[in-house]
Every structure is written in structure tokens, then in C-alpha cells.
Design a protein around this nucleic acid. Sequence first.
RNA 1: GGCGACGUGGCGGAGUGGCUACGCAGCGGUCUGCAAAACCGUUUACACGAGUUCGAUUCUCGUCGUCGCCUCCA
Length: 465
Amino acid sequence: MLKLYNSFSNLLEEVELNKKEVKVYLCGPTVQSSPHLGHGRSAVVFDFLVRYLNYLEYKVTFVRNITDIDDKIIEKSLEENISYSELGTRVSVEFQNAYEKLNCIKPDSEPKATEFIDEIIKYIEILVENKFAYISKSGVYYDISKFDDYLLLSGRKKEDVLSGTRVEIEEDKNSPEDFALWKFSKENEPYWDSPWGSGRPGWHIECSSMIESILGKTIDIHCGGNDLIFPHHENEIAQSKGAYPNEVFVKYWLHNGMLNLSGKKMSKSEGNIKLLNDYLNEFNGQVLRFFFLRSQYRSPQEFSIELLKESESTLNNLIEFTKDVNPKPKDKNVLSIFKESMNEDLNTAKMLGDLFKLINDSGSLEQEKLEDLKSSIKFVFNVLGFELTKKDINKTADEELIEFFKKYDIKFENINQAVKEFITKREGFRKIKDFDSADKMRDSILHVGISLEDGTDSGWSWKTS
RNA sequence: GGCGACGUGGCGGAGUGGCUACGCAGCGGUCUGCAAAACCGUUUACACGAGUUCGAUUCUCGUCGUCGCCUCCA
């Protein structure tokens, strides 16, 4: 039985869903700047969720939105002297590429706020009609005083929120905690026409509106980073309950923990962000993905380049262990470890530990059982979106490699052929016990990232750094 | 100040009222011309104080500390 921690009840709940139709919505990024590692974590951990639901034979409809219009995007595009849409498109492409490298499955729908302006306006009209919204000089606002159940998700009181420091008081709102549904445009700002005046949607309304348009009034699982709980998700609830008071909006709220750098949250506002692309060039996407697997999705997770390298080592060991088998669901222990830990609020960290325990105890297994263990481990990793094969091993020749082998009179055709010839040459020295020369060759090839391993199957391997 | 989370061995990170988590690194060994890889073995852990209990890292209370949110954010 799958259990998930519901942020709304603050409880681990047994999930009851209709197998034939599970609707999942993930709050995606605001495309104002390049994707950072935190975006990666959120995308990957909820990709684990969707893949696991698929494995359990739920029929999932998965939507992940893109916020392509908001104050920060406008601000940034003015700085760069390009249009908001040019900036948004450029950054969206970066996100797509990153998601692809991380092997996240493509959502069934990836709506952008600006593609749903009509729907958003209709939604606001309902809120105005239901008296949850009012029009003022600067825009249309949600009237918090009308919604009694405000802040149930974050478990706060209205009066406590009032004491916050960031409330914009300069605006002509009835109450400081009211939030914008529609913002009238100032000069040089992009705008769309609306019954109240030209402007743009507020940050929160797009999600309520797109959820309804694409998935319907009730969805099963709503995911996002835990920094979105307040105000974003509170406001989504306020909007959706304001528009449709008698409908259940979301059955299960799931929130992932933040990524930390030296114990502090990585975020745009802290200015301590690490860009995904920086690491996706140096490491392959699978390593990043594996890094995210090592911690349970709700826990804060510490990031550093050392920890990423550590993940790479661990992953390589796993790849090595399973290298000669095809993925098959054979070993009952592996499958029950997989299901039990995933059922326990997607505890991928526990799964990993328990699987390694099996690997450690596998020394005495007979051949067939050992193969079953290996192919089953490969199987569950496949389910979670890992190929468990070494990538980049057939790295195309670059100038450095060609030059290197030329020094030893070896013509570079492909990496395997070249290294093989190199090893044969070195073996010549070893045979006549000229170990000085043999060691020099081994040292020199190490400088181009190839490490020779006498007595192993392949005789060599790539080093990553 | 309000609300919440957490404090586990060198680092990371699970979990449990009594049984080695696990990974990586380290150390020792086997192997090897040497090294690497592989394999075997292995070291100081549950912030502090009190309580409940036959027994607490796990439950309760207190203390200290760290972090998150409080209308920017994944």
C-alpha cells in the first residue's frame, strides 16, 4: 500500500486513488533565469513518483507548468533589453534540455501561463462573481477576509501572517495580505486585454486556472518545492475554493525539501545557486539523478561537488555490479525492498541502503541466484529512470587524444582500438621487465583520463577528473 | 516575534523500544614487478540533562544549537 506524506494533514497517508485516472500537477519553474540544482531535484524526485505510479499500473496524467510571465521576468528582460517572450523562450529551452538530460519523462502537458490568458480571465470573473475578488486602481485582488479556511495548508493564522515583513503596503489593497489576480500594466510592460483593464495575470492564478482547464476541478496529487507552500499554494487553494466552494481541489499535497549548500538553502534570493548546466556538462545526467535518489525527497539535502563525485563512484560500482545482465524482475527480495521502501513515502535512500546490503551478502550466492539479483537490481533502477550503463565510454576523439596516441605511433580510429594498441605496446616492456618504461606509459596515459588496470577484463577505464 | 522541522560515526544519509543500516572516504589484508581494480576484514555514532521502561539513539519533558517559512523562490 502506497503511503505518501500529505502536507495538508501533516500525516503519512495511505493513498487511495482511482487506478484508471490519476491526475498529477507539478509546479514548474518561473523562466526568468537558468535552471539550478534545486529545480533539478524537484523535477527528478517527482519523476520518481510518476514512474513509480506507472509501475503500480496507475494511469497517470502528468502536468508540469511553466510560468512565463511575472514581475521578475519583465524586470530581467528589460535589463537584457529583450522581450519577455524572448527571455522566456530561451530559458524554457534550457529547462527542457536539462529535464531531458536528467531523463525526466515528458509531461502529458506543459502549459505556459501566457497560453491560458482567456481561461485565467474567466477564472477571475468567477472569483469576482463569487465576491472573492475586488477591483482597485492597480489591479484585481483576492479578498482574503472572505475565505475562512485560508492558511490551512501552512498551519498558520491570518494575524500571524500580517506580522510578516514583506507585504507590499504601497498598493491600494483592502488589506495587506490580499494578493493580485490581475495586475494592470504600467508603461513598457507587456499586457493582455481584460474586462477590468489591460494587464497580466498574478503569479498564483495561472495554476488554479490551468489545473482546471487541463485536469479538471479536482486533482489527485499536487507537487512542488516546500518553499511554495506559502504563499503560492495557499493562494491556489483560496482561488480554487473561491471559484468552486463545493469541490475538492487537491487530494494529496506533496512538497520536496530544499537543496542546501553548507547547511543553507540554495535559492535565487540567497544568491547561492548552482546551475544545473554546469554540472550536466561535467557529469552525466544519470549521476545527478542518482545524487537525488540518495536522499528521501522531503529531507533537506546537502550538495557539494565532493558529494556529487561520491555519487558517481557509488553509481559506477552499481553499474559494474550489474554490467553483464539484462533487467528482469526475478529476485523477490529486491522487488519487495523496492516496493516497501517506495511505498513508504518514496524512501529511495532506504531502498538504496537495503539493496546494497543484499549486494554485500551476495558473495556466497550460486551463479543463477546472483544473476537474478543483478538483473532485478537493474530492473528496479530502470523503473526509476536509470539505464545503469556507462555513458560516454565511446567518447569521440578529440585533438588531445589523437595527439597523445600519435606520440606512441598509434593511429587513432576509436578509443577502444587505440587503447588496445597502447596496452600491447606496454605489455612488450613488461615482458622484458622494463618496468620503468611501462610505468611511464601508464602515468602518461593517465593524464588524458585513461587509467590502466592490469589484470582486469578490459584492462583500462575512464577517469572522470 | 509567530509557526514548523531537525541535531546520527571523517563526510553524506536511513531507521528502530532490545538485533551490523547503507554509501563514499580511511585503515589492514589477499592478489600484483609496482600501482589500480577486485575481493576479504575493520575503527570513535545517535547534541546535552532528567523522566518513563527490565531495557531508549528511538517515547516524554527541559536545555542548548542549527535550519526553514512569515507575500521573491523548486
